[in-house]
Structures are given as C-alpha cells and as structure tokens.
C-alpha cells in the first residue's frame, strides 16, 4: 500500500542499536496463551505469541485467539516460566506406566443402578 509510509519504523522493546537489521520480535519475549472456552471448563493451551510485556500480550491474545468468540477468559504466561519435561527422558518418565493396566478403572464392575459414575 502506497500510503503505509514506513511501517516498520518504530520498534519498541528491541535491543537499542539493533533496529536496522533485526526484526522486532527478537527483542520481544514469547508468551503462551491459554483460553477457557466457557465457564466450568479448564483453560486450554491454544498457541503462543510475541509481545513486549504481559499487558500487551493479553491484548494481542484477545486479538489473535478470540476473534471468533473462542473464550471467556485468557491467561498469558511467559514461555520462559514453563518447565517442560524433556523428550530425552520420555522413557524414564512415562514408560513405567505402560505396563500397569490395573491403574485404569476398567477392572471394576459398575453396580447396576449407580448413577453419576
């Protein structure tokens, strides 16, 4: 668009001196976005975005992830605050549960007439 002027001119949050060559997102931390679709449900992870701070991340999450009435509540969490399990430790973490089928409630007979079970 001819009228757009110099749209990439202002680069808040980026490292001083790096504006000319680096996209702004290099200076903006990543945030994970969680949305609760309606009351009574848990917040679900829906994606991530770059933002300069929590308040802006919240506004951007609203704009990017709730355009089609997807939610009634939003959480934004700095990606750096999340401690994730390592794929390398997958076996040590999760394999031992695989041969313990008795932990599933499938071996119990549900008595007839019991509601809400």
């Amino acid at each position: 668009m001819a009228g757009a002027g110099s749209p990439n001119g202002s680069v808040p949050g980026s490292v001083p001196g790096s504006e000319a060559t680096e996209p702004a997102s290099r200076g903006w931390p990543l945030w994970e976005v969680f949305i609760r679709a309606r009351r009574g449900l848990a917040h679900n992870h829906v994606g991530s975005l770059h933002a300069a701070d929590a308040e802006l991340a919240m506004g951007m999450a609203r704009d990017v992830y709730t355009r089609r009435s997807e939610g009634v509540s939003i959480w934004v969490v700095p990606t750096a605050s999340i401690t994730a399990s390592s794929p390398d430790e997958k076996d040590a973490f999760f394999a031992s549960a695989a041969d313990k089928p008795y932990r599933h409630p499938t071996f119990y007979d549900v008595p007839a007439g019991v509601k809400h079970l």
Partner: peptide, 21 residues
C-alpha cells in the same frame, strides 16, 4: 480504510491482526 492499509505491513504479526481487527 486507513487502518486496513496496515494489513501485512504492521511491525509485528500480532499487531497486524490487532490493527485490522
């Protein structure tokens, strides 16, 4: 119409969506 000119030109993808919203 003016704000629509920012579509695909905003400084950040997220801001692009915000302005066009």
């Amino acid at each position: 119409q003016r704000l629509g000119e920012w579509s695909a030109h905003a400084p950040e993808l997220e801001e692009d969506v915000a302005l066009t919203n």
